[in-house]
């Protein structure tokens, strides 16, 4: 994210993003995995597990990217 007119606001905006992004990717990953389990394939727990792991990786990767842009 490029710099905005107000440096305090811009930094805060980027920092606040990290926490919610972690949560959101985990929710989406788990949700996608769970729906694959229940409606598409009979892979009972493994879709959910795989989805959660992918969501976690995505969240950490996003947090890392945001932190790198901050520094």
């Amino acid at each position: 994210m490029p710099s905005s007119p107000d440096p305090v606001f811009a930094g805060l905006g980027q920092a606040v993003q990290i926490g919610t992004n972690l949560l959101a990717t985990l929710m989406v990953g788990g949700g996608v995995g769970w729906s694959i389990d229940s409606y598409v394939l009979p892979t009972q727990p493994w879709g959910l597990v795989g989805g959660l792991v992918l969501g976690l990786i995505a969240g950490i990767r996003n947090a890392y990217r945001t932190a790198q842009r901050l520094s």
Partner: peptide, 14 residues
């Protein structure tokens, strides 16, 4: 690709 799809879908959620 699945990771990117998840992080794209997470945008409106977050």
């Amino acid at each position: 690709v699945p990771i990117e799809i998840i992080s794209q879908l997470a945008r409106p959620v977050s």
